[in-house]
Nucleic acid binder design. Structure first.
Lengths: 132, 132
DNA sequence: AATATATACGACTAAATTTGTCGCCTTTAG
DNA sequence: CTAAAGGCGACAAATTTAGTCGTATATATT
């Protein structure tokens, strides 16, 4: 049922790792090893999280990333949007390229559903996901 | 944010069409025309809905499909599962082919989130989606 | 009975998206 | 000044989704 993609999974695993450690910096490589995710992709995901203020990057020897945002204040909605730049339940809700739009018989229903789903995802924090 | 796929959209448009008409049978071709969806794909989707007891198929001249289930009793969850045979938030929750499973650091969190999402989708009926 | 109109379904192709890789650049502690 | 880290654009591979084709089956109408 509309799956999480790998990037989101990697992000979750990384965040879990950060949330469980002390808050020393951890390198992308270390995260990749700890999570068994591909190093390059992990690096990308961490960069994205860092550019959105979830992590803080530190250059140089012994550099890496550090968690700087309280995960109880980051919603699943926010994370998914950050990590895969996402959009909405249907393509036409973001890209205005849907040539069916004018004749589409379910625009309003889908917008309606979309809003409900987004509100739902906004209501769940990452912390809540981790602490079952 | 984890999009609806075309088949689900076509199914929604078809169901909307049925729910708004009188309950005469409507052919796949007519539905496809009314919804501007590709005929073959529409036919498939209708077949699936019919094999799952949402629609009833009638062969022959003037045949077609008729809505036989109360849409207030069909959840979004049910529809998505019927139409794209779907599964769960993550591949590993259904296919047991995820070779990371044993070392995956977020199985439980994802199962947790998955359940919440499913419960949410189960709580919304198709009728509710249509009547904004 | 013949025919036209429908559904049913397996196999295939094409398109789009997702996932992963490579190479090169920048920053900074030691 | 160098090794270890992050940053980023472009590309390639893999997977998934979407759409097509062909053929078989059912049945109301004539």
């Amino acid at each position: 049922m509309s799956k999480l993609n790998k990037k989101v999974e990697y992000a979750l695993m990384a965040l879990k790792h950060f949330s469980e450690g002390d808050d020393t910096t951890v390198s992308a490589k270390d995260i990749a090893e700890a999570t068994h995710a591909p190093a390059e992709v992990t690096a990308r995901v961490l960069q994205t999280l860092s550019s959105h203020g979830i992590l803080k990057a530190e250059y140089g020897l012994h550099g890496g990333y550090r968690l700087i945002k309280d995960l109880s204040k980051v919603s699943v909605y926010e994370l998914v949007n950050i990590v895969d730049g996402s959009t909405g339940l249907a393509k036409c809700l973001s890209d205005k390229e849907c040539d069916l739009l004018k004749k589409c018989t379910i625009v309003t229903p889908v917008e309606n559903l979309n809003k409900k789903v987004q509100d739902f995802y906004k209501s769940i924090s990452i912390e809540e996901v981790f602490h079952v």
